[in-house]
Structure formats: C-alpha cells, structure tokens
C-alpha cells in the first residue's frame, strides 16, 4: 500500500511538472514586469525603457516597466529576488553597486550568487580625468604630490567610489574621497570648479566634458583603447585596473526554469541589437554591451571573487 504522504507528494510533483510543461510551451501568457530599482528618469531607467518595447515585440507579451526606488537600489533588488521564479518578474541590477553592500554584510533581501542571470545589457569602463589646465599630467603626478589627491564622488557606496578606493589602494596612492555631489555630472562640475584634483568616472560621461574643453582624460581603465589618443591603464602597467567597470545586468529571482531564462535572454539580446535601440544608444551616448545568460552568469561569479579580495579596503 502506498504511503499517503509520498503518494501525495508524487501527485503534487506530477501536477507541478504538468503545469510547468504547459507554461513553458506558451510562455509568456501574461505581461512581464521589468523592475528598475531607481526613480524614473535616471540611467538605469532609460536603458530599461529603451529595450522594453523591443522585448515586447520579440516575446509577444507586454513588458511593464516598474520603478521601485529605495535604499540605494536594494529595495527593488529585494522585490525581484523574492518574486515567483516564473519569469514574469525580472529586474536590472547595478554591479558592483549591489555587490559591495552584500560583501560587507550591509545588504538586505537579496543574494547575488543565486540570482538567475538573463544577460548583460551595458558595461561602462572608467577613466581618470583632471581639469583641462591641470598641473597634473599623469596618475603618478597625482599620487606623488605629498598629500592625498582629492577625488569627487556622490557617496561612499557608489560604483565609481568603490573603483577609486580599491584601484588606488592597489598602487598605494593616497586618496581623499570628497563625497556628497548630487549625481555623476555634478562630480565633474566639482572638478571643473577646482574643488578636487581628479575624478574617476565612466568614459562616456567624461568624454562630453573633454570635447567641450572642460576636462582632460589622462587614462582609461581598460585593456584596449576606446579613445585613440588616451593610454589605457594596462598600457601604463596598472594590471588590475581593467577589471573595474559598471554593469547594468538583467536578472530574475533564483530558480527560473532554463527554457524561460533562455527565452528572456534571447529577447533581451535581440532587443539590444535591434535598430531602434542601437540608434537610441548612439544618439544618447548610452553604450550597449549585450551578453547572453551563460556568459553573464560567469562574469557575475568572477566579479564576486574579484571584489571579495578587496573587502578590507572597503570596510
């Protein structure tokens, strides 16, 4: 005689399989919620709003953008993390903006190691800039001025602040992080006002101000040159600097079935490569770097390891 408990479990399992099987075949059957963990109008928001209509076309289902701001992006992240893993709730993640709080035990409601990664949407590499008429012409000059060089930033947990503090600690360069600027453009204006000696910010943001003659980019944090006339950190011998970047990466709650993950990933990459999104990216100076689910998962576990090494610097 079958044990009623195991029998019951077997029935439940069969039922579950049947429903997931059916769900996979015609997934998606209802609108998909795409969570942005910040208020409307910011960088992450605009990326998501640009790709969402194209994902809709590919998936044949509505993609609803929902802004859930709060606690530096952690509230939105936690909302996505706790959602049902049915693929109907996904979100965009700020890395290392969300990686660092987790490493320091200051995060709540999510764990990046078991998020179902769907794909990388954009990657920003960093650059070091000084005032256009600055006396400093290299990172070396900044580091050897006898006192810590002043660096402008929004807050101590921001991605560029994390990059600046870790990278400068790697070469024992004393740095004083002047925080409190309202947004990344404001940190560049602070540099122009001469309040700080230098700032480390995404290449695309700084480039606008180099073109207008307000700042001078000394070095980019990468392996191969984006800017023809600016040396990369790797060329200059700062080996680890190319590891730093800001990723806008898309993921859902842990345990999304592989087929649904693949469908979502395909839609995200397809949307990022569509003519409309490419055109938006070029004219708004918001670079794209579409990478599929497998590679994105690998990148995420590498990054976790990379930042774990520097836990002490951040604390």
């Amino acid at each position: 005689m079958p044990n009623p408990l195991t029998h019951g479990l077997a029935v439940a399992a069969a039922a579950l399989l049947a429903t997931t099987g059916a769900a996979l075949a015609d997934w998606p059957e209802k609108p998909i919620t795409f969570v942005v963990p910040y208020s409307p109008g910011g960088g992450f928001d605009s990326y998501v709003r640009a790709v969402a209509p194209e994902m809709e076309k590919i998936l044949g289902a509505e993609v609803v953008v929902e802004n859930i701001p709060g606690a530096g992006g952690q509230k939105g992240a936690a909302t996505v993390y706790r959602a049902d893993p049915d693929g109907y709730t996904i979100g965009i993640w700020n890395v290392p903006g969300l990686t660092v709080p987790q490493l320091l035990g200051k995060s709540s409601g999510y764990d990046l190691t078991d998020v179902t990664w769907i794909g990388n949407l954009a990657t920003s590499k960093y650059a070091l800039a000084v005032q256009a008429d600055s006396e400093f012409d290299s990172l070396e000059a900044l580091c050897s001025q006898g006192e810590p060089f002043k660096h402008s930033d929004t807050g101590p947990a921001s991605t560029s602040s994390v990059t600046a503090r870790i990278s400068m600690s790697l070469i024992d360069c004393p740095i004083m992080n002047v925080t409190g600027y309202k947004g990344s453009t404001d940190t560049i204006v602070g540099l122009m006002r001469g309040e700080v000696d230098a700032t480390i910010k995404p290449i695309a943001s700084l480039l606008k101000y180099q073109k207008s003659g307000d700042v001078k980019i000394l070095m980019t944090f990468e392996n191969e040159r984006t800017l023809a006339d600016v040396p990369t950190s790797t060329e200059l011998g700062y080996t680890d600097f190319a590891n730093f970047d800001l990723r806008r990466i898309v993921g859902g709650p842990p345990g999304i079935p592989a087929d649904i993950q693949a469908k979502l990933s395909e839609a995200l990459i397809g949307a990022a490569n569509s003519a409309a999104v490419q055109e938006w990216s070029a004219s708004s100076n918001r670079p794209l770097d579409p990478v599929g689910a497998d590679e994105a998962s690998a990148i995420m576990s590498n990054l976790m390891e990379f930042y774990t090494q520097y836990k002490d610097v951040l604390e």
């Binding site: 960088g43 640009a50 004219s283 708004s284 918001r286």
Partner: peptide
C-alpha cells in the same frame, strides 16, 4: 535621454 538626447555641457 528617453528621446535619445544626451544632456551635457553642449
């Protein structure tokens, strides 16, 4: 930005 315009110094 949503309309593909990059606000900046210019």
């Amino acid at each position: 930005v949503l309309h593909g315009i990059d606000p900046g110094p210019s």
